[in-house]
Design a protein around this nucleic acid. Structure first.
Lengths: 344, 344
DNA sequence: CTGAAAGCGCTTACAG
DNA sequence: CTGAAAGCGCTTACAG
């Protein structure tokens, strides 16, 4: 005999009562509950999740889908880990667990997600690395799986999402550079159709317009979000007929390669070319010159994701009554030395 | 009506036959099997995993436990993602899925693992970031959950493991530096009790001994495996009465901080202090000077982990007859410019 | 080759 | 407040 049956036998009561006691139902004698709880601890009883899932139709787990594709995992580990930590802080309030679902590089993300949904491993999902057009959104809507996206997408849908404030970043970065005399500002964005590149580029254009600077398509460098991509960006920038005096890098990892590329050509980052990169990470301040970039509390983003996801799940909607959350997350400027020099 | 019952009704056959057809059992008429397979595709039927798990006692999923603790996630994302990719390549051969279990920073790893085991979410586990003494090993043994460790541990147990060849790294690094005239070689290792630090340090001592160099405890810098840790290491090194002419850094991320720390003191990495760091990552070659370090195919390590894990699971042991694998994984030297200068 | 039935471990109306 | 029973969706001996 195993499981709840064994526990019930041990206590000479019915499995129904054991179950009710364990699950905190009010209609149980307190003395009985104590005995059950004590015996469960003593015998190391833990309910079999498959049994519960089959009966209740819920897994008590939330999935976080990740892709290893260059344009997102270029971020250091701590990006996602910071977010996980916040998500878990929320989920643990309700005995929910977070499981991360990594999509293999050789598998189509949409097919992967389809499989994971069919497997019914989780009750709800968080997706990240949203694309301009993202078929995963339709898939999740059709399957009626509650989900939230970390990142906006152009695919029409009324799902909840949280995204970083790329517009604010572009605005403040351009303002800063213009204030220091720069008029020719390049930008390096991902060459994939990941949506943040599109949003960032659009905001960059509008910021230039505010300052009466004409947008120049040739100053947009499409490259990969990695050290290598930054190196290539430097190469392209150096090769321009009129060399820009400043550049915005969407990913901080690009800065390592960009610095190197500039130096290989005898130029000094921060001096010959002002650099502002997107997200602050530990490396930002240890590079020389220290990177001017933008900070966000990953844990807070994770908490936001967790709470907003629960708000969209019927079983938790009354505890988190915020409805369908669509939120642009503010970021804070961190001044470094990479954009100090004034443009002549 | 739902699930397999619906499919069976649609075809006017029994659910038993549907199940056998779907699961590739030989005792099914081929024409029947075709009809079932076609109908399943048409109706989008996918077996409910909870039902299968309850009946079969297996989840067809493998877990990979991760900790966000500084000394391991200091690695860039691609470390674990590269490994996941290899693991998944193996698991997918058998319709097994990989789920990643991230332990929150505020939760005790052993307690977390205990919960995950009790939850019966996965059939087997991969653990990483093994410590000198690792209670998770005993826990997994006691629970009779098949597992493999990425990393050795001092905790006695006959479980399978794969670990990187820290001994080889220490040996070759010391040999190189000694050949260039260095006799005073510092080493920066994690201050936590993560086991690789212990192994690396031991191998470093033995390598010095081979060259008749006395081990000097004051040249061992205990610090965190991060940019910040590297910066501190530089600070400590600079403050030494007799400044070492070379240093071994266990994590490549340390190099960023170490370079910065040296430069802040007016010293040049690679020139005033030779640097060899441990694992090659994209940043290695974009730093200036490019880092001399050691390369490993993460995907191959993942494949090794996957196959060795399956070899330890009764259901797959006949397909992977390698028994209990305990393997030190070789690494390849990548020459950079950070250890070029000869010591005078 | 196929069907009918048992049973995996739970939770939850329903009676009492 | 507690017990007996049904049933979640599957797979698998067992009969035929």
């Amino acid at each position: 005999m195993k499981g709840i049956r064994r526990l019930a036998e041990h206590l000479s009561i019915s499995i129904g009562t054991v179950s009710r006691a364990l699950n905190g139902r009010p209609d149980v004698n307190e003395a009985t509950r104590r005995r059950v709880l004590d015996a469960a601890a003593e015998l190391g009883y833990v309910p079999n999740q498959a049994g519960r899932t089959l009966r209740q139709g819920t897994t008590n787990a939330v999935g976080f889908m990740m892709e290893a594709g260059a344009d997102t995992s270029g971020n250091p580990d701590n990006f996602f880990f910071g977010v996980f930590d916040g998500v878990q802080a929320v989920l643990s309030r309700h005995q929910l667990d977070l499981v991360v679902l990594p999509c293999a590089t050789d598998e189509d993300p949409t097919e992967y997600l389809r499989r994971m949904i069919a497997r019914r491993l989780v009750d709800a999902l968080i997706i990240s690395a949203t694309h301009r057009k993202d078929p995963r959104v339709e898939l999740l809507n059709k399957a009626h799986v509650p989900f939230i996206a970390l990142g906006r997408t152009g695919t029409p849908s009324d799902h909840p999402w949280i995204d970083l404030d790329f517009e604010g970043v572009a605005n403040r970065a351009v303002d800063r550079l213009v204030a220091k005399g720069h008029r020719s500002i390049a930008v390096a964005v991902p060459s994939s159709d990941i949506n943040l590149g599109v949003i960032f580029l659009q905001a960059y254009k509008e910021a230039l317009a505010r300052h009466g600077i004409a947008f120049d398509q040739s100053l947009v460098i499409y490259t990969s979000s990695s050290e290598q991509g930054g190196y290539q960006a430097a190469h392209e920038l150096i090769g321009m007929a009129q060399r820009p005096t400043a550049i915005l890098l969407v990913y901080e990892l690009m800065a390592i390669g960009f610095y190197r590329g500039l130096r290989d050509a005898g130029l000094n980052p921060g001096q010959d070319v002002a650099v502002i990169a997107f997200r602050e990470s530990p490396l930002s301040r240890f590079l020389s010159p220290a990177l001017t970039c933008f900070r966000v509390s990953l844990r807070d983003v994770g908490i936001g994701l967790g709470e907003s996801l629960l708000a969209s799940m019927p079983a938790y909607a009354d505890i988190y009554p915020q409805g369908i959350v669509r939120r642009v997350w503010p970021m804070e400027l961190v001044e470094g030395d990479s954009d100090n020099a004034r443009s002549s």
